[in-house]
Structures are given as C-alpha cells and as structure tokens.
Design a binder for these strands. Sequence first.
RNA 1: GCGGCUAUAGUUCAGCGGCAGAACGCCUGACUGUGGCUCAGGAUGUCGUGGGUUCGAUCCCCACUAGCCGCCCCA
Length: 430
Amino acid sequence: MTTLKAVRGTRDLLPPETALWNRIEATARRVFARYNFGEIRTPVFEDTSLFARGVGEETDIVSKEMYSWEDRARAQSEKSQSLTLRPENTAGVVRAYIEHKLGETGQLQKLYYIGPQFRRERPQKGRYRQFSQIGAEVIGPPSAGSESPLRDAEVLEMLATLLDELGITGWQLHINSVGSSADRARYNDTLRAALVPLAHKMCADCQRRAVTNPLRVLDCKVPEDQPIIETLPKIADALDEDSKSHFAAVCAALDAASVLYTRNPRLVRGLDYYTRTTFEFTHGGLGAQNALLGGGRYDGLSEGIGGPKAPGIGFAMGEDRLVLTLQALNQGAAPPQVDAYIAPLGESLNPAALALARELRRAGLSVELGDGSFRLKKSFDAADKAARRIVILGEDELASGILTVKDFSTGIQSKVPRAELAAHLAQPAA
RNA sequence: GCGGCUAUAGUUCAGCGGCAGAACGCCUGACUGUGGCUCAGGAUGUCGUGGGUUCGAUCCCCACUAGCCGCCCCA
C-alpha cells in the first residue's frame, strides 16, 4: 500500500513554524485594528462566474489556474452549478459587499481577511497551490470618499507600517497608475502598434508578448531589450487628466507621510479589474517570487459583477512569502521555553506530579510534565531543552512540601516551599 | 503547461555494478537524586514508486510521482 502524502503544492505547517504564522497574523490584526479595519470571512468556494467576471476571463488565473468542479444537482428540478475554490479574495469581498448592500450604509467599508486561496500552478518555493493571503479592501460609494487618493495613500502607509512591525527590513514599494479601463485599453493598442516595427529585434519571449500581451513586454528582464523598452510609449502619457491628478495626489500624500516609494512606470498587474493606482512591495531573497504583496485600485469591479458603483482599493500579501522572508532575516521562530519542567522521581510520584502541574498551570505558568520512569539524568536533559527551570518532585519533596528548583541559566539550585513555588517560577530567568 | 537539476537514516548529505556510510540528532552506560563538556557502546533505512538491462541494480536505461530552479504568470 502506498503511503498517503499531502497532495502536490500543499503542505503541513508544524511547530515551531506555526508560532511564526501566528505572530504574523496577530501583528496584522493589531495593525489593521489601529486603522479601523474589521474582519470579513467569505466562503472558500464561490460560483465560478464570480471569478470569470470579476478577475477576468482572459487572465491566466481564470483561464488555466482555477480549481473548479461541477456541483451535481440533487433533484431533477435543480440545476448543477460550477463552483471554484477562490483563487483570490477581492472578488468574494466585493460580492459580499453587494449581497449585503453595504453601500446602502453610506459608510466606507474597511475590511480585512486572512485565509487560504487556491491556484493550480506549478509549485515552487513561495508558490503553493494552497496558499494563505492576508489582505484588506477599502470600498464604498463615492460619497463616502472611496475614490479619494487619500485612501490609496493611507493603505500604502499602513502596509509600510505593517511590514516594519513584522520586522521585515529592506522592502521596496513600487507604484504606478494604469489609469481608467479606457486609458488602459487605449495604451494597450498604442503599445501593440509601437511594437510592430521593434519586436523582431527583441527576445523570443517579447516577440510573443508583443502580440499576446504587450503590457508584459515592459516586465522583460533581458538586458539587451532594455534600451528598446525605454523608447516605448509610457503609460503615464496615456492617462486622462483625472487619473494623472489622482496619481499625483497619492504621491503627494506619501511624501507628506515620509513613506519611501519608487515610481515604476512598468508596473502592470495581471488582474483585469485594476484601475489607476497599482503597487507592489518587493523583497530580495525570494528568488523569482520577489513580490511580498500586490494590490491596487478597482473602481469598476463592483459594477462589473452586477453591483452598484463602489470604487475601492485593496491588496493581498502572500503569507507564505512573509514567512520565508522573516526566516531569511533570521527572525524565524525558536522553539518555545516553558516556565518549568516537573520531574517526578519514580512512577509512584506521577499522580502527585500531575497535581503539582495543575496547580502551576492554573496559576498561569507554562509547564511541561516529565515522567517518573525517566532517570533523573534523562529528565534534566529533556528539561534543559524545553524549560527555563526544573522542579524536582521526589519522596522527600512530597513529604516536606519543600521543592527542589534549579535554574538553568544560572545553575543555582534552591529549595522552595510549595506555597511560594508559582511566584518563584514566575520570576524572569536571571 | 514548458525546460533543467534532484530524490540514500529523524535531519543535512557522501557513496559505489558485488555486506548500506558520515556528521548532527536519538537510545544505553561510565555517573543508583543532578543537565550542558567528555568517553564507551547501540539502533537507525523498502537507497521515492514501477518496469527494463544484468549472474547480480541503491548505482545504468525508461516511465511515473514529488521537490527545487527557471519560463509563463503571479502573492
């Protein structure tokens, strides 16, 4: 019989790494709360058409990376339905915004989520088929200020703060504006036309991109192509006046808040719904997956899936990549040390050891419980790895109520009355 | 989906067409209630899975699976 394994592109997270995941999530929740975001939890699967209409039929995500299946009809009268594991969470959040008529509140909605997403891609380090994203959306009717460049800048400033508080040093923020969807379509045509006489001088990938996806030519990393790319029309020149001034206002607000960024006129994102501001936080040391998070404004998404006008801006950060980055920065989780390790001497002391452990744990201490069958030497060995102090519980200690405690950091051994034990163990190690 | 590299002990990895190896970790003892250092001893395992070549395959060949790197694309 073949042994079962986690399926391709999925994996188990084990201690102590899970402690790092919890720290990241706790930090994100703490920062989001300071900016008055509330948590939203949407279903892990949705109607397939939500993603087809929201993310874009022609995107790679929708055309070849979704986990979709036909949910069978239970009765003759019931139609079967195509369902899909969510490949990203923005479409689900906007669907919920529409479904619950959150626009009718007249208030700006500030929502964050943390959870698994699914894409059927070739797995690589930092790219899994089930991956976790931490994201947030600011969305609402225009009267609530949802189109204001201040919202863009606030989200970016929040992200800079979040990365700082996570302990990620050396991040870079790249921002750009892709304009309205009309601007974008017009620029796409301009670029395609401009590439016609140039493409044959470029790399094979670019020759293909020039036809299939001209915007991607801007991302080319081949050194020989760079001079040609420099001569191509800039998207900034294709923007209408509103988009230009909006982008200028975003930059001005970032300057005022001293958030460092780079204007990157080549930054184009892969999802169809992005308009105006797009951005990406990157970090070296992630290989080809150098993006920690990405996002942008999506002023037409709600209407695109049948909702009211509800401009918004949001981002999604790859939690797996935050973990990799923090580990690379030597901020991975160390095995935890409990306050005390209780070593009963002899199996007859085991019941008394449990009673003592219960007493200490109820006092709020973290306690590891050994076993009376261990020789004391073995208990010391285990205790030294797991705990700051060892508490020895033998016949003498049980009878006298005076316990033997040794502090591993100082090597000092002392006798502590049971009534004072919890307080003694609560003291920080010397 | 395409191309390249890889798969051997719990972990990181050597290795060779003829008995399966090291380091670290683990277990036992020296030391009957005292860890870290030291010393002595011990167990590590379907050599990824299936087929082929061969007297004989962990090694060579093929397929599959998985991981890593790159491409596409993206968090």
